[in-house]
Nucleic acid binder design. Sequence first.
DNA 1: TAGATTGTTAATCGATTAACAATC
DNA 2: TAGATTGTTAATCGATTAACAATC
Lengths: 208, 208
Amino acid sequence: MEKQISQAVIARLPRYFRYLGDLKDKGVERISSQELSSLMKVTASQIRQDFNNFGGFGQQGYGYNVEYLYGEISKILGLTEKHHLIIIGAGNLGQAIANYMNFEKRGFIFKGIFDANPALHGKQIRDMVIQPMDNMESFIKENDIDIAVLTIPKTGAVEVANRLVKNNIKAIWNFAHVDLNVPKDIQVENVHLSESLMKLSYKLTKEQ
Amino acid sequence: MEKQISQAVIARLPRYFRYLGDLKDKGVERISSQELSSLMKVTASQIRQDFNNFGGFGQQGYGYNVEYLYGEISKILGLTEKHHLIIIGAGNLGQAIANYMNFEKRGFIFKGIFDANPALHGKQIRDMVIQPMDNMESFIKENDIDIAVLTIPKTGAVEVANRLVKNNIKAIWNFAHVDLNVPKDIQVENVHLSESLMKLSYKLTKEQ
DNA sequence: TAGATTGTTAATCGATTAACAATC
DNA sequence: TAGATTGTTAATCGATTAACAATC
């Protein structure tokens, strides 16, 4: 892919994917940018621009074939490939993510879960057993892990991230409330729940 | 507040707040936009523009007083006020959020937790007991609830959101993977975990 | 073919960055 | 006062929207 795709476009792709999936499930065969526009409440112009970043998926006078477009976006998002994940931090959040089955449907396969707390070791989460942190390095190598989910408190997060980087992890899904400073070939996606809640609080304050 | 503040600015405020909190804890008294810039990896120009959306918090030749600025951003974000929350959906994610103590420090107080599953009713989560959904309406009124946290599967989310709106909830923190269609005076903040993971997957695919 | 709707270029809008006068 | 650094205006950059020719 030559051209650099903007963050704004990328951020919209999963939502397109979701709507197209719903349409597909409903048996809808084709859709125009205009119809999708009124459904998703974005401009038809933006929809066409967005898709054309990746090539022409539509057809003049017809619109877009739902199933085909769904498949193409799925490919763009890398959902046709399998990813092997480990979860670092088996607290409530780590367990919640481990138990969320829908990720597996998209090719995200949880291989292991780790925690520093010895009291949790050996506890079963789905088909995984909570392991001590010392096992992490060898487990990554042996199981071809490419994504690590960081669900530990911010205090330990930076150190663990460094260990992950040393062991050639490719991506970190970071729920710890710190900015990780990793080499730029390591992909990081942050989920900062408290920031999200603060945004809600801001809106609430302004709207009285 | 007269001028409309852009979403981009609002989204950056919690991060400023976090960095200023850390600086305050370290005992740092003053900071210039240039210093904050190299710390946060955003331009000094953007920092000054952002703050000046809300008035002048700095002083020429001096910079910004960390504690004062922290306090001002705290006010802007509405963190000096108390919010009463309920959690709808006592699954793993709902429990994870209920147990995350740091929210309380910022004035977000969990008052109740609800679930449709009778097997969970009566179970204790911190100082709350999981209640049946039927109790929700009266509980909202009696406890002056302004924020509802939606941690239920997407199937029930739209219906529950409608019930919340009817009962004058002011804001919904939505973890269900649907777009809620509520009146525009109701504030909604979405946390779509699967979309976040897909973005990570996209980056991973592009970077090989 | 005529009608519909894309793909794409051009126009507009908004956000970010640069520059510098104001001022502590 | 001189130096530092903000607040703010102006310039630039990028993203969104509008328009329309291409084409199914």
